[in-house]
Design a protein around this nucleic acid. Structure first.
Length: 105
DNA sequence: ATCTTGACCTAAT
DNA sequence: CATTAGGCCAAGA
């Protein structure tokens, strides 16, 4: 079974617990390709076909909602995160480290 | 096979 | 603090 890089990313993102977030680099690192962080983000772009992939729980290394612009409108991503107990300020996750989830977990 | 793009990351200026 | 540059990888045309 040759699973595309995307499917591997989806598998990890789907495992993100509610109220937790992770970064593209963390996922890429977990997959064994720490330098493919961009590809992870790109995979998320294709995740639009799937509704099982909480892309809103994936942010960049700074905890910044870089992909929020790709969601419907400009506040959907923030709404989803806040709905899970995560606080956002200036498009950035508050206490990012506290909400960070390690894929290895 | 070549070229382009992209929701990144780090460092330098 | 804002901007630029380089690197790195995968998929689509």
């Amino acid at each position: 079974m040759s699973e595309s890089f995307f499917e591997r990313v989806y598998s990890v993102v789907r495992k993100i617990p509610e109220g937790k977030v992770t970064s593209y680099g963390a996922i890429a690192n977990y997959l064994g390709t720490p330098k493919s962080a961009r590809v992870v983000g790109w995979a998320m772009n294709a995740s639009h076909d799937l509704d099982d992939v909480p892309a809103h729980r994936v942010v960049n290394r700074n905890g910044l909602l870089t992909g929020k612009h790709f969601f419907s409108g400009s506040n959907l991503m923030r709404e989803l995160l806040e709905s899970e107990g995560i606080k956002i300020e200036n498009d950035k996750i508050v206490d990012f480290e506290h909400h960070f989830w390690n894929p290895s977990t």
